[in-house]
Each structure stands twice: as C-alpha cells, then as structure tokens.
Design a protein around this nucleic acid. Structure first.
Lengths: 339, 339
DNA sequence: CTGAAAGCGCTTACAG
DNA sequence: CTGAAAGCGCTTACAG
C-alpha cells in the first residue's frame, strides 16, 4: 500500500487521475491534446487539475521525451553589456517555443568553460550558445558538437564544424583603420584582446592586414588587454608611455578597453582626439556616455542573440543535418568625438 | 530483446554496468561515493566510464532525488547593469554547491513574471531569486512561496513572508535628500520608479518623508519613470519645462533615469549642477562615465546576489523552517559632479 | 563487497 | 473514447 501523498509533496498526474476517476493516460492527453478526450471527461479533469493546483513535473516529461527545453548560454562576462543584450535577443527568439536559458558566466576561464559545458550536457540541454574565450574551436566541437547543436556567437571559428553567428571581425577592424587613415593618422596602434581567442585574433588580423596593405603596420604598436576597462587602461598606458614612440590613434578591440584607453590618456595628460584618437568596438551604452563620446564600430548584439536562437530552432528540427553555417551580422561605424 | 543502443543515443548507466560486468547499483556508487566499492571494481568501472564517455543524466537523477540543483533568477531587465552584477554574485555563491541559474528577463511585465515563475516551478527549481516589478508580494508568496524558498532581491517587501535581500531604500532616498539639502537646495524634485513596485514606492516614501520633516515636500515636483533612460528623460522633461515651477535638484530612483534626466537637462539648456543638480541610485559603471559624472547612491548589487545565494543555501537545508529574514546591505553616497 | 528490484512522474504504443 | 503497462535513466532501501 503506497503512503498517501504527504502535504508538502506536489500533486502528481497519478493524484489527478485518481481524483478525476480516469487513467493517467487520459489526464496526460487532456494536457497535451495529443488525443481527443470526451468533453465531459476533459472538463472534469481540468477542474481537478485546478483544484489540486497540479503542474506537470517537467523533469519527468523531459526524461521521457529526451528533451529538456533548455538552452545553455555560456558567456565570458555578464557584466560586459554586450552579453546581456545578446541574452535578451536570444531569449526573445526562444521563449515562444518554450525554451528557457541556463546561464553561465565563466570569466573567460577555460576550465570554467569546460566545466559548465559538461554540466549543461549532463543536464541534457537541447542546444548550446557559447561565447568561448579559453576554448579552441576544435575543443568546443569535440566537447559538445557531437551531442547537441552548438552555435558560437561573437566570433567566427575558421573551418569549424560548428554554426556561428558573428560580425565580420576582420572587416570591423579594417573599417576602423580606414576611418582613422581618412582622418590622417599614420601611427595607428591597437589594443587587442587576449591572444588565442577567436574574436581577438580576427580583429587583430583585420587590423594588421589593413595597415600592411599600406605598409604602415608597426608591431611595436600592438598591445594586449583582456576586454575589460582595467585591461585596456593598462595596455594603453604601456603604449603611450614613451612620447617618441607613441601612436596617434588607437583601435581597441572592444568598448570597455577603449574606455580604459580614455582613462589612460587622461592620466597621461593626452587630449583625445587631439593627441590620441580612440576607436572601440561594440557600441555599448557607455560608449555614448563617456567624454569624449567614443567613436566605435557598432555590433548588433541583440541581433546576434536573436539570429543564434533562430538558427538553433532550425537545428533542433528532426531533419536538420545540414552543413554548418556562419551567419554574419552587419556592423556600422558610429563616429563620435574620440576620433 | 532490447535493441542495441543506437549510435546517437548517449550511453546510460546500464551500458556502463554491462560493459564493466557489474550492476547499475555499483556504477552508481562508484560515482557518488555513497558506498564503498572494491578498488579493482571501481577502477574497472571508471575505465569503462572514460571509454564510453558516460555522463550521468541529471534529469533522471533530479527526478529521483526530487531536486534539480537549479535556481531560477527573474529580473525585469538584464540590460540594466544592476542585474548582471547581481547575477554574477549569485552565481559565485552557488556554483560551488553545484547549482546552475535559469535566467528570465521579464521586462517587468507581470504576465511574463507569472509565466516564468510557473514554468520554473514546473521545472522543479530548488529556489527562486526574484526581482519582481509587476507582482505584489502577496502574489509572489502565493505563487511560489509555498513550494520553494524564494528570496526577493532589490526591494523590501513589507510584512511579507518571503526572505529578502535589499538596500534600505527609504534611507537611500533620505541620504540623497540630505546631501541635496546640505548643498542648499530648497526645491527638490524626484523621478520615481513605476508606482506600485516595491523599490519605487520605498524610495519615494523615503524621499517624501525626508522632505516633509522639513516642510519642504512638494507633490508637484514628483514625476514617474520606468527605470529606463528614456523614461527618465521624459519625466525630467516634464518637470523642468516650466522655468517658474522648476526644481533645482532631482533625486532619480536609479542611475538609468538619472542619465535620462541629464539628457533632458542638456536638451533644455540647463547646466548641471548649476541649474539642476541630479542624483541617482545604483552606481552602475555608466554613472562614472557620463558628463557631468553622476552623483549617486551606490547599491552593492554583487553583494545582494551573493547574500541572496547564501541565504538560499541555508534555506535549502532540510531543517530550515525559520522565520523569513530581511537582510539589508549597506549603501553609500558617491559624490561626483552632478550635484 | 555487491545486486535485484522498486520507484521518481511522466508519455505513448498497444489494445479494446 | 479510454486504460494497463512499459520505459525514460537514475538512486537507494533491502538483502545477502
């Protein structure tokens, strides 16, 4: 004899069935609509459901159906406004299909990235959206690509077998360089992101190649940051220390670092853009708020999230065994006062 | 005869047991450590696990154990930097205990809040952290309070049976008023948050009472925004339109609205702080970036997240049937250039 | 030191 | 129009 359900235990489909005098099968079908149920029966079941406050246990359903209706989202830094905007776009694309977001902030640490991806897989997420910093494309593909659809966001993974949604980072950098060249700058430096990360490498390559085409690339004008304001400040500080070797313009691989470069310029007594022009990437809200307002290349992070969501939705269709796709979202130079 | 597992099906504990020549029980115990297993057996099992790449299905475990190791986080606006910082603190407090965050951005819409809370409950989250805007405390408690521990963050719920972690919003407002009074302002207005939301109401009450104590409260100097920059701009615009009736200082219930007030002042040709002093709340990064840099009352959102996580952890202990607690985090006036 | 079996709460193929 | 039963992949009380 089973114990009567204790008061702090939620009602189950079994309890509903008993109270309504039908089978679990029937209760299940009034809920899912997968099979017609007599009107009177359905009404009775629904009444009982309301009375008991029954809510089907999604865990059990997910186990049975082998889909959790959950998407894992891995970002290096939620406090970088680029990612919340992306998360919002992603949620908007997925919410109507009943998906929820499992969020992880990894701090860009490869171990944390691996750990979260493994954990998300154990929880049987139906797909993964990842902005990985520490992981190589191969590792990402090997870790998760074989199990669930994965879309890499905010970085193009060369030759990867993964889907990805990103801006064309080389052109982003090239456009910034073109802007600075048009303003007459000849000594253009850059604050790149961490070497080895896909976004950082691409933006640096776009930067270098654009300058090399004109024979103006100077490796001593390259510094590295970690995509944070502090990192940008430190890198810029190193670059402008020596007046003789100083660049007249700086392309920073994101806005946070560009804002740090503004800090460094101020600390060094350099006028922006007079002594040093600064261009960022992203166009986070803060870009328009700093003084001088930051010239930047706008990346539509909300669109990236939304497009990634739509791509995932199509990947989760039963048929979807297509070749990996790379979807490029448009970027746009926003000229403000720092250049 | 069961079919052999198809290639795209993940290995189960059953497959591991078969390959290692032991029972599922034993495999389970080498994984959990809940029961001693002979060294040789354990080693063999582990080898098979590695070979097959077995990862236990958390859905099944959660169903059996009646805990999902998941915490639901409900916020009105992820793109408001206050919340990512909170999310980060929360994750930091919970990650070591194996909890993951299920995130929802509700846009402050009560229907979205209800929908997400219901959905999270169906997914059997172990607890909920919510910053609700549309829901009353009673409704929040009724919806979820009976089922899982709930902590309300960023707003004190008067007389609620829910835990909450927040700044002392009345004092936050009172401190801002005191600052403005000390600067000599006599006509102090406010841009409040949406009436009916707990944070907004508390900050408005703190504001009103502080001024009433000195007989200086003027209801015509109260406007309402929705905690966004645009909302703040519109509210400030209305307040400063008439030069004769204009306040000389504005307490804004958050930084985003204060930044909007700065926009409005600029558009109206008013000097800040000369013609209009502006004080915000939160101290998001942007507060230090705008011009003039924003005087604000700093709320440690990361701490709120962390404390909420710790509180939840203690609530999820089996014994925990204590009375609801309200934990107040400290705030601090940050004087910058806008006042 | 180890295993057989029950059960967590669902869904659905099979049967009538 | 409806139900009995198997099964999703785990954990654990019970037994030896």
């Amino acid at each position: 004899v089973p114990e009567p359900s204790s008061p702090d235990r939620l009602p189950t489909i079994e309890a509903v069935a008993a109270a309504a005098g039908v089978s679990k099968t029937t209760v299940s079908h009034v809920l899912s609509g997968n099979r017609p149920v007599a009107r009177a029966t359905a009404a009775r079941v629904r009444r009982v459901i309301d009375e008991l406050g029954y809510r089907p246990n999604t865990l059990a359903r997910s186990l049975k159906m082998a889909r959790s209706q959950t998407i894992g989202l891995v970002v290096p830094d939620v406090t970088n406004p680029f990612y919340p905007a992306l998360a919002r776009g992603l949620q908007a694309a997925l919410v109507d299909s009943g998906y929820l977001l499992l969020l992880a902030d990894t701090g860009g640490d490869p171990d944390a990235e691996r750990a979260f991806i493994a954990e998300a897989l154990q929880r049987r997420v139906d797909a993964l959206v990842v902005s990985a910093f520490g992981l190589t494309e191969e590792e990402l593909d090997r870790l998760a690509g074989a199990v669930v659809p994965v879309v890499a966001v905010g970085a193009e993974l060369a030759g990867s077998r993964l889907d990805c949604v990103t801006a064309d980072d080389e052109r982003v950098a090239a456009d910034a360089v073109a802007h600075l060249r048009a303003r007459g700058h000849e000594r253009i430096g850059t604050i790149a992101g961490p070497a080895g990360t896909a976004v950082a490498d691409r933006r640096l390559r776009g930067f270098s190649q654009a300058l090399e085409r004109e024979g103006r690339f100077d490796a001593t004008l390259v510094a590295y940051g970690d995509f944070t304001r502090d990192g940008g400040r430190a890198a810029a500080h190193a670059l402008v220390r020596d007046p003789a070797e100083r660049p007249t313009a700086l392309f920073c691989a994101n806005d946070l670092m560009a804002i740090g470069a503004l800090d460094a310029a101020r600390a060094a007594g350099l006028a922006v853009p007079g002594d040093l022009a600064v261009v960022g990437v992203d166009d986070i809200d803060a870009a328009g708020l700093v003084v001088p307002a930051l010239t930047t290349v706008r990346i539509p992070s909300g669109d990236i999230g939304r497009v990634a969501g739509e791509l995932l939705l199509s990947r989760m269709e039963p048929e979807a065994r297509r070749a990996p796709r790379t979807i490029l979202v448009g970027h746009e130079l926003v000229e403000r006062d720092s250049s």
